[in-house]
Design a protein around this nucleic acid. Structure first.
Length: 294
DNA sequence: CGAGTTTGACCAGCGC
DNA sequence: GCGCTGGTCAAACTCG
Protein backbone atom coordinates (compact mmCIF):
# COMPACT_ATOMS: atom_id res chain seq x y z
CA UNK A 1 0.00 0.00 0.00
CA UNK A 2 1.30 3.38 -0.84
CA UNK A 3 0.97 5.37 2.30
CA UNK A 4 3.37 8.13 1.50
CA UNK A 5 0.86 10.50 0.05
CA UNK A 6 -2.26 10.20 2.07
CA UNK A 7 -4.92 12.82 1.88
CA UNK A 8 -5.21 14.54 5.17
CA UNK A 9 -8.37 16.35 5.82
CA UNK A 10 -7.40 19.99 6.13
CA UNK A 11 -10.29 20.63 8.44
CA UNK A 12 -10.10 17.76 10.80
CA UNK A 13 -6.48 16.91 10.41
CA UNK A 14 -7.42 13.32 10.07
CA UNK A 15 -6.22 10.98 7.50
CA UNK A 16 -8.27 8.66 5.49
CA UNK A 17 -7.34 6.69 2.50
CA UNK A 18 -9.47 6.39 -0.50
CA UNK A 19 -10.36 2.78 -0.63
CA UNK A 20 -13.67 1.15 -1.15
CA UNK A 21 -12.82 -1.64 1.17
CA UNK A 22 -11.40 0.33 4.03
CA UNK A 23 -12.90 2.97 6.16
CA UNK A 24 -10.57 2.97 9.03
CA UNK A 25 -9.73 6.21 10.56
CA UNK A 26 -8.16 5.99 13.87
CA UNK A 27 -6.36 7.41 16.73
CA UNK A 28 -2.97 6.03 17.31
CA UNK A 29 -1.54 6.36 20.72
CA UNK A 30 1.33 5.44 22.87
CA UNK A 31 0.66 4.86 26.47
CA UNK A 32 2.40 3.51 29.47
CA UNK A 33 0.39 1.18 31.60
CA UNK A 34 2.84 1.45 34.40
CA UNK A 35 2.06 5.00 35.24
CA UNK A 36 -1.31 5.23 33.64
CA UNK A 37 -0.28 7.88 31.21
CA UNK A 38 -0.78 8.36 27.56
CA UNK A 39 2.53 9.24 26.05
CA UNK A 40 1.27 10.27 22.70
CA UNK A 41 -1.72 10.00 20.54
CA UNK A 42 -2.61 11.09 17.10
CA UNK A 43 -4.86 10.31 14.26
CA UNK A 44 -3.46 8.01 11.68
CA UNK A 45 -4.30 5.10 9.59
CA UNK A 46 -3.50 2.17 11.73
CA UNK A 47 -2.65 -0.55 9.34
CA UNK A 48 0.19 0.96 7.39
CA UNK A 49 1.52 2.55 10.50
CA UNK A 50 1.81 -0.69 12.33
CA UNK A 51 3.41 -2.23 9.35
CA UNK A 52 5.87 0.56 9.23
CA UNK A 53 6.66 0.24 12.86
CA UNK A 54 7.22 -3.44 12.62
CA UNK A 55 9.36 -3.23 9.57
CA UNK A 56 11.16 -0.08 10.43
CA UNK A 57 14.14 -1.14 12.50
CA UNK A 58 16.48 -1.06 9.56
CA UNK A 59 15.57 2.48 8.77
CA UNK A 60 16.17 3.96 12.14
CA UNK A 61 17.64 3.23 15.49
CA UNK A 62 14.99 5.25 17.16
CA UNK A 63 12.70 3.62 19.59
CA UNK A 64 9.23 2.68 18.56
CA UNK A 65 7.81 5.63 20.36
CA UNK A 66 10.03 8.00 18.52
CA UNK A 67 9.05 6.53 15.23
CA UNK A 68 5.43 6.99 16.00
CA UNK A 69 5.79 10.48 17.28
CA UNK A 70 7.73 11.38 14.23
CA UNK A 71 4.98 10.08 12.04
CA UNK A 72 2.50 12.09 13.97
CA UNK A 73 4.55 15.17 13.52
CA UNK A 74 4.95 14.59 9.86
CA UNK A 75 1.28 14.10 9.47
CA UNK A 76 0.64 17.26 11.38
CA UNK A 77 -1.91 15.55 13.47
CA UNK A 78 -0.73 15.99 16.97
CA UNK A 79 -2.37 19.31 17.42
CA UNK A 80 -5.52 18.15 15.80
CA UNK A 81 -6.31 15.14 17.84
CA UNK A 82 -9.21 16.94 19.34
CA UNK A 83 -10.91 16.69 16.04
CA UNK A 84 -9.91 13.25 15.18
CA UNK A 85 -12.24 11.14 17.15
CA UNK A 86 -15.14 13.41 16.57
CA UNK A 87 -14.67 13.59 12.87
CA UNK A 88 -14.85 9.91 12.51
CA UNK A 89 -17.74 8.58 10.58
CA UNK A 90 -17.71 5.81 13.15
CA UNK A 91 -18.28 3.41 10.36
CA UNK A 92 -21.95 3.72 10.93
CA UNK A 93 -22.78 3.10 7.33
CA UNK A 94 -20.98 -0.17 7.21
CA UNK A 95 -21.73 -1.26 10.70
CA UNK A 96 -24.72 -3.35 9.90
CA UNK A 97 -23.46 -5.01 6.79
CA UNK A 98 -19.99 -5.61 7.97
CA UNK A 99 -20.85 -8.76 9.70
CA UNK A 100 -19.13 -11.57 7.88
CA UNK A 101 -19.20 -13.71 10.95
CA UNK A 102 -22.83 -13.04 11.56
CA UNK A 103 -23.79 -15.03 8.55
CA UNK A 104 -24.53 -18.57 9.30
CA UNK A 105 -22.56 -21.33 7.81
CA UNK A 106 -25.57 -22.66 6.06
CA UNK A 107 -26.36 -19.30 4.61
CA UNK A 108 -22.86 -18.88 3.37
CA UNK A 109 -22.81 -22.31 1.91
CA UNK A 110 -26.03 -21.63 0.15
CA UNK A 111 -24.90 -18.34 -1.25
CA UNK A 112 -21.49 -19.46 -2.32
CA UNK A 113 -22.66 -22.77 -3.69
CA UNK A 114 -19.69 -24.40 -2.11
CA UNK A 115 -20.20 -27.60 -0.25
CA UNK A 116 -18.79 -27.73 3.21
CA UNK A 117 -15.25 -28.92 3.39
CA UNK A 118 -15.41 -32.42 4.82
CA UNK A 119 -12.11 -32.34 6.61
CA UNK A 120 -12.76 -29.11 8.44
CA UNK A 121 -16.21 -29.58 9.74
CA UNK A 122 -17.98 -27.70 7.00
CA UNK A 123 -16.08 -24.46 7.12
CA UNK A 124 -17.42 -22.23 4.43
CA UNK A 125 -16.30 -18.70 3.77
CA UNK A 126 -18.46 -16.08 2.21
CA UNK A 127 -17.63 -15.08 -1.27
CA UNK A 128 -18.99 -11.74 -2.17
CA UNK A 129 -18.20 -8.10 -1.74
CA UNK A 130 -14.87 -7.17 -0.34
CA UNK A 131 -14.62 -7.31 3.36
CA UNK A 132 -15.27 -3.89 4.75
CA UNK A 133 -13.29 -3.13 7.81
CA UNK A 134 -14.58 -0.93 10.48
CA UNK A 135 -12.96 2.01 12.05
CA UNK A 136 -9.81 1.13 13.83
CA UNK A 137 -8.14 2.51 16.82
CA UNK A 138 -4.77 1.41 18.03
CA UNK A 139 -2.63 1.93 21.08
CA UNK A 140 0.89 1.22 21.91
CA UNK A 141 1.13 0.42 25.55
CA UNK A 142 4.19 -0.21 27.61
CA UNK A 143 3.22 -3.32 29.41
CA UNK A 144 4.40 -6.76 30.27
CA UNK A 145 0.87 -7.98 29.91
CA UNK A 146 -0.41 -8.66 26.46
CA UNK A 147 -4.10 -8.57 27.02
CA UNK A 148 -4.95 -5.43 28.93
CA UNK A 149 -8.16 -4.74 30.73
CA UNK A 150 -10.35 -2.21 29.01
CA UNK A 151 -13.66 -2.74 30.66
CA UNK A 152 -15.00 -5.18 28.12
CA UNK A 153 -14.91 -8.91 27.93
CA UNK A 154 -13.13 -10.50 25.04
CA UNK A 155 -12.97 -13.94 23.57
CA UNK A 156 -9.88 -15.00 21.78
CA UNK A 157 -10.61 -16.49 18.42
CA UNK A 158 -7.25 -16.79 16.84
CA UNK A 159 -3.56 -16.34 17.05
CA UNK A 160 -1.13 -15.98 14.24
CA UNK A 161 2.55 -15.65 13.86
CA UNK A 162 3.34 -12.34 12.29
CA UNK A 163 5.97 -11.86 9.69
CA UNK A 164 9.05 -9.97 10.86
CA UNK A 165 8.00 -10.37 14.43
CA UNK A 166 8.92 -13.05 16.95
CA UNK A 167 5.70 -12.37 18.77
CA UNK A 168 2.36 -13.80 17.72
CA UNK A 169 -0.67 -11.66 17.13
CA UNK A 170 -3.79 -12.54 19.04
CA UNK A 171 -7.30 -11.91 17.81
CA UNK A 172 -10.11 -11.13 20.18
CA UNK A 173 -13.81 -10.56 19.71
CA UNK A 174 -16.19 -8.96 22.14
CA UNK A 175 -18.09 -11.61 24.03
CA UNK A 176 -21.33 -9.74 23.56
CA UNK A 177 -23.08 -11.63 20.81
CA UNK A 178 -24.51 -8.48 19.32
CA UNK A 179 -21.25 -6.65 19.38
CA UNK A 180 -18.93 -6.86 16.41
CA UNK A 181 -15.95 -5.20 17.95
CA UNK A 182 -12.67 -6.98 17.52
CA UNK A 183 -9.25 -6.33 18.74
CA UNK A 184 -5.79 -7.49 17.88
CA UNK A 185 -3.01 -7.65 20.36
CA UNK A 186 0.59 -7.99 19.47
CA UNK A 187 3.95 -7.00 20.77
CA UNK A 188 6.10 -4.64 18.87
CA UNK A 189 8.99 -6.45 17.31
CA UNK A 190 11.14 -3.40 17.78
CA UNK A 191 10.22 -2.91 21.39
CA UNK A 192 9.09 -6.08 23.15
CA UNK A 193 7.96 -4.05 26.10
CA UNK A 194 5.35 -2.38 23.97
CA UNK A 195 2.00 -3.96 23.35
CA UNK A 196 0.12 -2.82 20.28
CA UNK A 197 -3.61 -3.12 20.71
CA UNK A 198 -5.84 -2.42 17.75
CA UNK A 199 -9.57 -2.10 18.18
CA UNK A 200 -11.92 -2.42 15.28
CA UNK A 201 -15.51 -1.32 15.40
CA UNK A 202 -17.60 0.12 18.12
CA UNK A 203 -19.26 -1.53 21.06
CA UNK A 204 -23.02 -1.50 21.02
CA UNK A 205 -23.29 -2.01 24.73
CA UNK A 206 -21.92 -0.77 27.95
CA UNK A 207 -18.84 -2.04 29.57
CA UNK A 208 -19.17 -4.97 31.86
CA UNK A 209 -17.80 -2.79 34.54
CA UNK A 210 -14.33 -1.75 35.37
CA UNK A 211 -12.86 -4.51 37.38
CA UNK A 212 -9.69 -3.75 39.16
CA UNK A 213 -7.57 -1.22 37.48
CA UNK A 214 -7.73 -0.02 34.01
CA UNK A 215 -4.71 0.16 31.91
CA UNK A 216 -3.58 3.43 30.61
CA UNK A 217 -4.98 3.21 27.15
CA UNK A 218 -8.41 2.60 28.51
CA UNK A 219 -9.05 6.27 28.85
CA UNK A 220 -8.26 6.93 25.26
CA UNK A 221 -10.20 3.92 24.22
CA UNK A 222 -13.16 5.08 26.21
CA UNK A 223 -12.87 8.36 24.45
CA UNK A 224 -12.87 6.61 21.18
CA UNK A 225 -15.91 4.68 22.20
CA UNK A 226 -17.76 7.65 23.47
CA UNK A 227 -17.23 10.48 21.06
CA UNK A 228 -19.41 13.51 21.34
CA UNK A 229 -20.36 13.32 17.71
CA UNK A 230 -23.93 12.84 16.72
CA UNK A 231 -23.09 9.53 15.20
CA UNK A 232 -22.66 8.05 18.59
CA UNK A 233 -25.47 5.68 19.20
CA UNK A 234 -24.94 5.02 22.85
CA UNK A 235 -24.06 6.95 25.85
CA UNK A 236 -21.20 5.24 27.51
CA UNK A 237 -20.45 5.66 31.12
CA UNK A 238 -17.56 7.84 31.98
CA UNK A 239 -16.11 6.17 34.96
CA UNK A 240 -13.61 7.52 37.35
CA UNK A 241 -10.51 5.70 36.43
CA UNK A 242 -8.77 4.14 39.32
CA UNK A 243 -5.42 5.19 40.50
CA UNK A 244 -2.45 3.09 39.79
CA UNK A 245 -2.49 1.90 43.33
CA UNK A 246 -5.82 0.30 42.70
CA UNK A 247 -4.44 -1.97 40.09
CA UNK A 248 -4.91 -5.58 40.78
CA UNK A 249 -2.24 -8.22 40.60
CA UNK A 250 -3.11 -9.17 37.07
CA UNK A 251 -2.49 -5.73 35.80
CA UNK A 252 0.74 -4.27 34.73
CA UNK A 253 2.76 -3.51 37.75
CA UNK A 254 4.14 -0.06 38.18
CA UNK A 255 7.56 -1.45 38.68
CA UNK A 256 10.57 0.04 37.06
CA UNK A 257 9.44 3.14 35.37
CA UNK A 258 11.63 4.56 32.72
CA UNK A 259 13.11 7.94 33.30
CA UNK A 260 10.86 9.31 30.67
CA UNK A 261 7.80 7.90 32.32
CA UNK A 262 8.89 9.02 35.72
CA UNK A 263 8.69 12.55 34.53
CA UNK A 264 5.08 12.17 33.67
CA UNK A 265 3.01 14.28 36.01
CA UNK A 266 -0.05 12.16 35.56
CA UNK A 267 0.13 10.62 38.96
CA UNK A 268 0.04 13.97 40.65
CA UNK A 269 -2.83 15.11 38.56
CA UNK A 270 -6.24 14.46 39.98
CA UNK A 271 -8.19 11.85 38.12
CA UNK A 272 -10.83 13.98 36.60
CA UNK A 273 -13.75 12.70 34.71
CA UNK A 274 -13.69 12.78 30.99
CA UNK A 275 -16.39 15.30 30.84
CA UNK A 276 -14.47 17.85 32.81
CA UNK A 277 -11.28 17.32 30.94
CA UNK A 278 -12.94 17.51 27.61
CA UNK A 279 -14.57 20.76 28.37
CA UNK A 280 -11.42 22.28 29.62
CA UNK A 281 -8.79 21.11 27.23
CA UNK A 282 -10.24 18.91 24.61
CA UNK A 283 -8.82 15.58 23.73
CA UNK A 284 -5.24 16.38 24.44
CA UNK A 285 -6.06 17.72 27.81
CA UNK A 286 -8.03 14.67 28.42
CA UNK A 287 -5.50 12.01 27.78
CA UNK A 288 -2.11 13.50 27.15
CA UNK A 289 -0.14 14.75 30.07
CA UNK A 290 0.54 18.41 29.76
CA UNK A 291 4.25 17.84 29.63
CA UNK A 292 3.82 15.87 26.47
CA UNK A 293 2.02 18.69 24.82
CA UNK A 294 4.78 21.18 25.38
C1' DC B 1 -21.33 -27.87 31.88
C1' DG B 2 -20.66 -23.47 29.99
C1' DA B 3 -17.26 -20.18 28.78
C1' DG B 4 -12.97 -19.32 27.08
C1' DT B 5 -8.51 -20.85 24.74
C1' DT B 6 -5.67 -23.38 21.51
C1' DT B 7 -4.51 -24.62 17.10
C1' DG B 8 -4.55 -26.34 12.43
C1' DA B 9 -6.87 -25.40 8.28
C1' DC B 10 -9.15 -22.51 5.10
C1' DC B 11 -9.93 -18.28 2.50
C1' DA B 12 -9.15 -13.68 0.44
C1' DG B 13 -6.21 -10.03 -0.83
C1' DC B 14 -2.06 -8.55 -2.56
C1' DG B 15 2.49 -8.42 -4.72
C1' DC B 16 5.52 -10.42 -7.90
C1' DG C 1 -1.13 -17.54 -12.00
C1' DC C 2 1.19 -18.43 -7.92
C1' DG C 3 2.85 -17.90 -3.43
C1' DC C 4 2.78 -15.35 0.77
C1' DT C 5 0.43 -13.36 4.52
C1' DG C 6 -3.28 -11.81 7.45
C1' DG C 7 -7.68 -12.88 9.17
C1' DT C 8 -11.12 -16.16 10.48
C1' DC C 9 -13.31 -20.55 11.49
C1' DA C 10 -14.38 -24.31 14.35
C1' DA C 11 -13.21 -28.75 16.62
C1' DA C 12 -10.80 -30.06 20.46
C1' DC C 13 -9.29 -28.91 24.67
C1' DT C 14 -8.91 -26.52 29.27
C1' DC C 15 -10.63 -24.30 33.16
C1' DG C 16 -13.62 -22.79 36.84
Amino acid sequence: MDDDEKPIDPVTGTYSHDSSSWNDYGLFGISDSRDNSILSEFGWNIEPELNRIDSAPKETDASTSEIVVDQATKAGLVENTGDVSMSNPVASSSESEDRPESSTVSGEAASSGKPPTPGTGGKVKKKGPKRIRQQRFAFMTKSEIDHLEDGYRWRKYGQKAVKNSPFPRSYYRCTNSKCTVKKRVERSSTDPTTVITTYEGQHCHHTVGFPRGLISHESAYARYLAPSSTSQQFSYPRPQFPQVGDLGPSQSQPQVISSEAENQPSREQPQTSFQDARVDQGLLGDIVPSIMRN
